[in-house]
Nucleic acid binder design. Structure first.
Length: 724
DNA sequence: TACTATTTAATTTTT
DNA sequence: TTAAATAGTA
């Protein structure tokens, strides 16, 4: 067999990993070191050269996108479709197992997956039901608690209250939440993993069967595995399995959602005889960028240690811009983007990164002003939209009457005269008889309520039953279409005023198209409807649709992980924002922020701008901040300060001198030699009037209302204003 | 039940 | 500043 196609274009370390013998291997893959390439080539190697059947491989990723990408790459490498190859997310694979072995897993055959929003609603309702008169119990915190326990593989009975009444109550919430889910046949994301783990743990024969089948376990982004995922992998690997885990401890940025980078450190202990390969040669960035990244991350302790290098050139220096405020920062970024675009570069090759979503607003405004098309990553995904979830709730109820979560969501949407009082009666009946809302509704309607409320409920129950009957036997998309019509949802949103209602209707129509295009996996023995509902829960869809226009990319540093761009801006690099205030005092938190910074820097291929503002409006308050400590961790010789930072002399003579901008006795305007209301002329913006002045020296700026372009804030020293 | 005023809090996100 | 949740009003 000619192995050249698989091995050419691989460097020594990559080749070592790809061709490794069948023993546990940990690949530490630095940013841009060809991680995905190693993973896909390894799979190709196993299949083509080692003769491993595709059925013997299990490849696990964290996102659906990564899974789809991996499958595509393998297929193009092997020039054939690879059916029977299990590639998927932890959740997707766990789901597949649970569908196959629902009985052993103790689940109803048509169990439904709920997303975090559904989960939160259930918890809120639970808290309300228990009628606590104080608001000590924050739903989000309970949710966090429950998921954290599940991520660690813990059931309520494993938990000790430590004689802490607070904790005791949290455990009680967990317990009751779980009862609600079990009664309704509902499985949340963490539960998928936990159940899948318990399924194998408690069914040794079943486990053995899968162990025999999956000898080779390939895991991407291994540093992001949480405890239950790792436990699941270890179970499956057993003594004979061959783990091939790829990750980077320096890019672990998800501890707050359960990821345990320690698994990387533990690997060699858990898998005796394991070896480690480090990929340090980088094919993405210039040496300058890599040197900066290496220098920053070197400040972290407890790392395995690695140093990125490249055969490429030094490249441009990293440019640091000290903006006066966040608007100045945005103007600067947009100016550079304009130039980039005008020079014929693709806008999509430029990314603006920030620490928190709130920062995008100012940037977006500036981009709109400059007429530069842009795209913000993140935001509501398709299947998370309200109207979509409403429609899905009807479908779920049709498939599974006991789904209380869906019942509550749509029982009075559109309004059909089932108010809070009626609902309360049903809830208390359901609670007293430990039954679902559906059954409670039937019981309560017949003997407890006034005629009006009772007939409203009966009408609702009949509606669902009728829709179930009418849709049975129809094609999936016809079912969906029928339900959004017959439920009255379409009419309900049609009445909603403004553009929002229109969008909602369009989205509902889009849902029908999605159903039309949906192809269920024939291997799964589910009804098309159930398959579609699971799909909707596991793959929430794209955040933004029109990805194809050439747009500047705006996103958080977190969402930038795994991506690369020739031109990158890292904005808001200030202590308090990045590293974030909430992580700054905790050494572990600070190290994670630093890893995030490392991720950000290594996104850049050629040009990296780092910007920070001395003054920033945050939560409606102007505040001052130092440049991020991460900037100072970059060696000075790699950096070029765009505008030499003038010594900011804040007078300390006055009592209020520390935090506030100097007020003094003479007006700032007079100090600057301009007066409020003065008419000025700007080369580009034309004529205007000075509205406001602030700052001093090189940082002095004026707010000018221009006749044609509106209000702008300009740095006086650079604006070249003509006084008139 | 729907609309409006008031209060409150404010990272990061995939499944 | 602002978005979301809650409380109060028509």
């Amino acid at each position: 067999m000619d192995v050249t196609p698989i091995l050419e274009h691989l460097n020594e370390a990559q080749r070592e990993a790809v061709t490794a013998s069948a023993a546990p291997l940990l690949v530490i893959a630095g940013a841009g070191s060809g991680k995905t390439r190693v993973l896909t080539h390894r799979i190709a190697w196993l299949i083509d050269v080692e003769g491993v059947s595709p059925q013997g491989l299990l490849a696990v990723t964290f996102t659906n996108k990564a899974a789809a990408e991996m499958r595509g790459r393998i297929e193009s490498l092997l020039h054939m479709p690879v059916n029977h190859l299990w590639i998927g997310t932890f959740h997707g694979l766990a789901h597949r197992l649970l569908r196959r072995h629902w009985q052993e897993a103790g689940l109803p055959q048509n169990f439904q997956i709920i997303d975090s929003d559904d989960q939160l609603r259930i918890i809120k309702r639970l808290i309300k039901n228990l009628e606590f008169d104080d608001d000590r119990w924050v739903p989000r915190e309970i949710q966090y608690f429950i998921n954290a326990q599940k991520d660690e593989g813990l059931r309520p009975q494993h938990l000790d209250d430590d004689n802490d009444p607070n904790r005791r109550q949290q455990i009680a919430f967990y317990q009751q939440y779980q009862e609600i889910c079990d009664r309704g046949g509902l499985v949340d994301f963490a539960e998928l993993l936990l159940r899948a783990h318990e399924l194998w743990r408690d069914n040794p024969e079943l486990l053995a069967q899968y162990q025999r089948r999956f000898r080779h376990l390939l895991v991407d982004e291994f540093q992001d595995t949480n405890s239950i995922q790792y436990a699941w992998l270890r179970l499956l690997a057993g003594r004979e399995g061959v783990p091939f885990f790829v990750g980077d401890d320096d890019q672990s940025i998800y501890r707050w959602r359960g990821a345990r980078v320690e698994h990387i450190h533990q690997f060699q202990r858990d898998f005796p005889g394991a070896s480690v390969v480090k990929l340090e040669q980088n094919y993405r960035s210039t040496a300058t960028i890599l040197d900066a990244a290496n220098a920053v991350i070197a400040n972290n302790s407890s790392r395995l240690g690695k140093n990125l290098w490249t055969e490429g050139g030094q490249g441009e220096p990293i440019r640091v811009y000290s903006a006066y405020n966040e608007r100045d920062e945005a103007e600067f970024v947009i100016g550079k983007l304009r130039t980039w675009s005008d020079q014929g570069n693709a806008r999509a090759d430029a990314a603006v990164l920030y620490r928190s979503n709130a920062q995008s607003r100012v940037l977006e405004e500036a981009l709109i002003n400059a007429r530069l098309p842009y795209r913000v990553y993140g935001g509501l995904r398709f299947f998370e939209r309200q109207e979509i979830k409403d429609a899905l709730a009807y479908l779920r109820l049709i498939s599974h009457r006991d789904d209380d979560s869906s019942f509550e969501r749509i029982v009075n949407k559109p309004t059909r005269g089932i108010g809070a009082r009626t609902l309360e009666a049903m809830r208390s009946y359901a609670r007293a008889n430990s039954c679902s809302m559906w059954r409670a509704a039937g019981a309560v309607a017949s003997d407890e309520l006034s005629g009006r409320a009772s007939s409203a409920i009966v009408a609702f129950l009949n509606l669902i039953e009728r829709m179930a009957k009418e849709t049975s036997g129809l094609d999936l998309h016809e079912q969906v279409d029928h339900v959004i019509q017959a439920s009255g949802l379409i009419d309900f949103f049609r009445k909603e005023k403004g553009e929002r209602g229109e969008t909602r209707i369009e989205n509902l129509e889009e849902l029908v198209s999605a159903a039309r295009g949906f192809q269920p996996d024939p291997a799964e023995e589910m009804s098309p409807l159930d398959a579609f509902l699971s799909h909707a829960a596991l793959e929430a869809g794209e955040g933004q649709a029109d990805a194809w226009e050439d747009c500047v990319q705006l996103m958080t540093m977190h969402s930038a992980k795994g991506l690369e761009f020739p031109l990158v801006f890292m904005c808001g690099m200030e202590d308090g924002l990045f590293p974030h205030q909430r992580s700054i005092s905790d050494p572990n938190g600070l190290e994670e922020e630093r890893r995030l910074c490392y991720v950000g820097i290594t996104r850049a291929k050629e040009t990296l701008y780092i910007t920070h503002a001395e003054q920033r409006r945050l939560h409606g308050m102007d505040s001052f901040a130092q440049a991020s400590r991460f900037i100072t961790e970059i060696p000075a010789e790699l950096v070029e300060e765009i505008r030499p930072r003038v010594q900011v002399s804040r007078p300390v003579s006055t009592a209020r001198g520390t935090g506030r901008r100097s007020g003094g006795s003479i007006s700032p305007a007079a100090e600057l030699g301009v007066r409020l209301g003065q008419r000025v002329r700007h080369v580009k913006f034309g004529d205007g009037v000075i509205l406001n002045c602030s700052g001093q020296g090189a940082h002095a700026q004026v707010e000018v209302n221009f006749e044609t372009v509106g209000t702008k804030i300009l740095v006086l020293a650079y604006a070249n204003l003509d006084l008139m």
